[in-house]
Design a protein around this nucleic acid. Structure first.
Lengths: 213, 213
DNA sequence: CCCCTCCTGTGACGTAAATCACGCCCCTTA
DNA sequence: TAAGGGGCGTGATTTACGTCACAGGAGGGG
């Protein structure tokens, strides 16, 4: 489990003094797989740094549609949680642990203070925004231009990478929800992928064989 | 045209000292309508603050598909141009002036320096990221969930707002490109919108009558 | 054992949108 | 005046998906 040495490893780029402060004031919170860290409508009043596990960040609109944004991994942070201060009107953000996870929670007041004091914190915040931004653009590309079969492959690859495992236990219904499609369609596409030898379907899980195209 | 008083009005939130520096080191560049400020593959080595006009920021992929990201208006800045430092691999960003425009260019080295020195600059950078992020999410929502007719309405609204005019001079081919559709489809949808009284079609331009739904 | 629920498979059909194939109008330039 | 190009309108066809309807298996609890 996360210790101060874990934090140190994950955030090597922080100045020693900053690292010490982070360890002092940061509160460790643990979440079980499927737990929500954050739900639509909630006020966000702290920054979240991921120590362990995978956190899925996504959006839900009025009709229950879901947009995947990105997954967060150890050493990364949620950009949204850093905006905090401002109006919380439309930010319909949800965050869910995909596996058992641990995060470090930093009160928002400190963020501004640190930004002025520690170059490495400022860089970290900027880099966080930058990379989330890139990921969001990537997602946008896929939704805008790729057909469902390619998006499904992409989905599988992401999970393979995030979970570091070739076995995915999601139901077709779940996947359909995430890709804004329907179970039936996913079922047919999965069959095709299996026929092509990319994946193998087991009871309650999908085995990834080879996603090269 | 932009003078130091314009800058002052647009960036009131800056500390006086910062404002002075901005005016000293910032270089004003002018662009005519349709000019590119930035094209795919170009290295970005400076931050861009918009003083006048409208700058459209978008992406283009290998197949020439275009994704609209957002429009920038006076007082706003391009978040992408602020990331600068890092690897420029995939950031396929294009920026184009929609009308005659003026921007203030700030060398990237100063950005980091200012962030540590001036609270208001740090806030500005963060706010820039935050709001671009929100806009990108908005775009994502529309692409993912709305039908073309709604997206077309959205497109028209955006232009009306950005250009502060009820007349749009874009050709259907252009609009189709921007919405990743085809001219024929846009043509049919425009006809429908005209029948419903939302717009009126003239020679070479579209008049917006009433976009309420 | 039966019933219930959750997951999956599959055909039939509907629909938004892309694509193809035209033809028309206006403008420019030779 | 002819010729060519750019923008537009419109039917016919195709494609990717979504939706509906229904069936069957696996597990679990009474």
């Amino acid at each position: 489990m996360a210790s101060s040495s874990t934090t140190q490893q994950l955030f090597q780029q922080f100045e020693p003094e900053l690292l010490k402060k982070v360890q002092q004031v940061g509160v460790i919170r643990k979440f079980k797989a499927e737990d929500f860290l954050m739900q639509t409508g909630q006020q966000i009043r702290s920054a979240v740094l991921v120590l362990e596990g995978v956190i899925k960040v996504f959006r839900e609109d009025d009709e229950g549609n879901e947009v995947f944004m990105y997954n967060l991994h150890p050493g990364e942070a949620c950009a949204i949680s850093m905006t905090c201060a401002t109006r919380q009107l439309s930010s319909q953000i949800m965050a869910k642990a995909l596996v058992d996870s641990e995060v470090l929670v930093i009160p928002v007041e400190l963020m501004d203070e640190w930004a002025l004091k520690y170059r490495s914190w400022y860089q970290f915040v900027l880099e966080t925004y930058r990379s989330r931004f890139e990921e969001l653009l990537d997602t946008l590309d896929h939704i805008a231009f790729r057909n469902l079969d390619e998006r499904l492959l992409w989905y599988l690859k992401q999970h393979q990478k995030s979970l570091k495992s070739n076995f995915i236990k999601a139901s077709f219904t779940d996947i359909a929800l995430e890709l804004n499609s329907s179970r039936e369609v996913i079922s047919r596409l999965m069959k095709k992928l299996a026929e092509k030898g990319h994946i193998k379907l087991h009871k309650n899980e999908i085995e990834i064989l080879n996603l090269k195209m």
